[in-house]
Design a protein around this nucleic acid. Structure first.
Lengths: 338, 338
DNA sequence: TCCCTTTAGGAAAACGCTTTCTTAACTCTA
DNA sequence: TAGAGTTAAGAAAGCGTTTTCCTAAAGGGA
């Protein structure tokens, strides 16, 4: 049989309550007694039974991380790992473990989410918004369950969240093109109902305006209704074709680059190219892709941090956090040698 | 206060033992009584407290999935998600949850692994071998903890594992080049102490031999001591340069492709190219990369399946599973129109 | 009708810890 | 030196299930 708190108590010559108090560093136990207890613990190689502790405290010490694990979302966001990594790091530090929950599990069957809550399988949720369905909000609200969104919830204004400052990212991208000497800057997005794309587009507009460049409607393209080669053709065929292009995600950028190469439009000389998120393949394109990078690891850190704070002090008021992106200039935007 | 088994018992007019038995479908409870109990449960919206259950059964109903979450490993294996997805699927079906544990956490501090075991935080481990350190084996053995390796453990022969048949993958890759008309086939690997690479190389050799092709030593290259452009130069400068190339991973293949493009060596006409693992970017290269794909989702399914079987019947003998890869022929190997 | 077997369901212990309440012993202060 | 205050530590309840053991009632055969 495993060694329990009783064995430690016997060995140290105290009661189990005293041992428990020593473990939790209760000030009513003097240092000498604590030491005696710790020695006994070490001698017996005692580890508190975490399940019993959970039971006594009615708290699982697990954080549910709900995120999409499906192939498409994963391939689109391979850096999502780093959220896991950051969240795990903070959880560990605070004695929590991360329970992974597939977004599609809870989206396909709302009962599943309710079950997780009612059964107290986890103490709170970290919810990455890819694939999220707002119908879940009702359930979350109903149980008033502690949670932090990763990504800014567009459907909700009273919950904690952390996000990348996508507007700022768009601004940085466009600004960088302007600084590289571009004068006619286009934007290709993947749908304006895509919140991230929308924010990046707004940032792009802001940069152009504040640099005194004209906002041309025909420079703003949406690939969600057509295909990339057609869009590139369209842009190239203009009387005043753009000389810089912001792509709202990596896959658009990679496709565009392929089209430009085929049409012998030189990058960056004829057309500079920039996109977002340091996709692992970005440094492998020809020329290497410039991006506005985001610190996803930090996203994991902060979200877990906020959630754990919330678990410890339930009265905590709403907290949000908007993270700044950083420019990673590579070859696809470098017009001048410098 | 939350509704407990007591409330259900009262409502249904039975004792709590009877409710518990009904929940577990104990045959000593007749259908009519069960129905009465289920009705009461539904009326009260009762969910069993999972922590209490865990406590009573001394089993956490959590499976620890140990995998590397660091940036490099994640970028190299973005499909690793699907392991998660598969494992979560099976776990859910069996009433288990997945607890994510960063490989670096347990590698940097062995006490951490011991703690997880001693505290019974999880019932068993799924261990993905990327980043694994064999020094952990001693601890795992010592506690005789249920586990399944994802990837074949080269340091150990008595544990359960699931893996891709990498030798078969290498064979399929080389065979496909031969079938496409290649006659001089080279191999670029990333180090022969890399188990995966070694197996793929063996498969490559086997395919060549069984097709009556000569195994030339100078066709087998290792990029771990040099760089890719140098290797490509070397190969191209031979009197009899290869006309087909197996690359042991995607990043090698992408680099090689870039070099070939630069040197105006046509792919696949002058040199056919194939690699492994359907990396998300593979369909975006120019020409599109042929690969031997592996079913990582199935890897997750099978590993979780074996582990859970083991948890339910501890006497279970060792079980292994080797999964067959499949060819995804794209443009980089298609010499003839067909 | 009696005894044995089967069926249905209850009582209670067990799981290992936390936490509140209580008390005994000690330390001051007037 | 009595009384108040403080400190150290124990007793015991409680957390919500599961599970074993037991019993009462019902069923069945002679």
């Amino acid at each position: 049989m495993a060694v329990t708190i009783k064995d430690v108590a016997k060995k140290a010559g105290v009661s189990i309550s005293t041992v428990s108090k020593a473990i939790h560093d209760n000030p009513s136990i003097p240092a000498a007694t604590k030491q005696r207890i710790f020695n006994a613990m070490k001698e017996l190689n005692y580890y508190p039974n975490i399940i019993a502790r959970s039971f006594a405290q009615q708290s699982s010490y697990h954080i549910g991380l709900i995120m999409s694990l499906n192939r498409e979302d994963a391939f689109l966001n391979p850096y999502i790992y780093e959220i896991l990594s950051g969240a795990e790091e903070i959880a560990k530090k605070n004695g929590y473990l991360i329970t992974l929950i597939n977004m599609s599990t809870v989206v396909n069957d709302c009962k599943e989410l309710e079950r997780l809550i009612m059964q107290k399988s986890v103490d709170g949720f970290l919810i990455h918004l890819a694939g999220f369905d707002p119908k879940l909000v009702k359930i979350l609200k109903k149980h008033n369950f502690p949670l932090v969104y990763i990504g800014r919830p567009w459907f909700e204004s009273s919950e904690c969240w952390v996000d990348i400052d996508n507007a700022r990212a768009g601004e940085i991208a466009a600004k960088h093109l302007i600084d590289s000497g571009c004068e006619r800057i286009a934007f290709i997005g993947d749908g304006l109902n895509n919140y991230i794309c929308k924010m990046r587009y707004e940032g792009y507009q802001k940069a152009l305006l504040s640099s005194g460049l004209e906002l041309k409607n025909e420079y703003a393209k949406d690939m969600s209704n057509t295909n990339i080669p057609a869009l590139v053709d369209e842009l190239a065929a203009m009387k005043e074709p753009p000389d810089g292009l912001v792509c709202s995600n990596n896959f658009i950028a990679f496709e565009v680059l392929k089209c430009l190469n085929k049409k012998k439009i030189r990058v960056p000389e004829d057309m500079a190219l920039i996109t977002f998120d340091n996709y692992p393949f970005a440094p492998y394109t020809e020329p290497k892709m410039s991006v506005v990078d985001i610190d996803v690891y930090e996203l994991g850190i902060q979200s877990a941090d906020i959630l754990i704070k919330k678990l410890k002090t339930p009265a905590l008021t709403m907290q949000c956090s908007l993270l700044s992106p950083t420019l990673v200039a590579r070859e696809s935007t470098r017009k001048t040698e410098d």
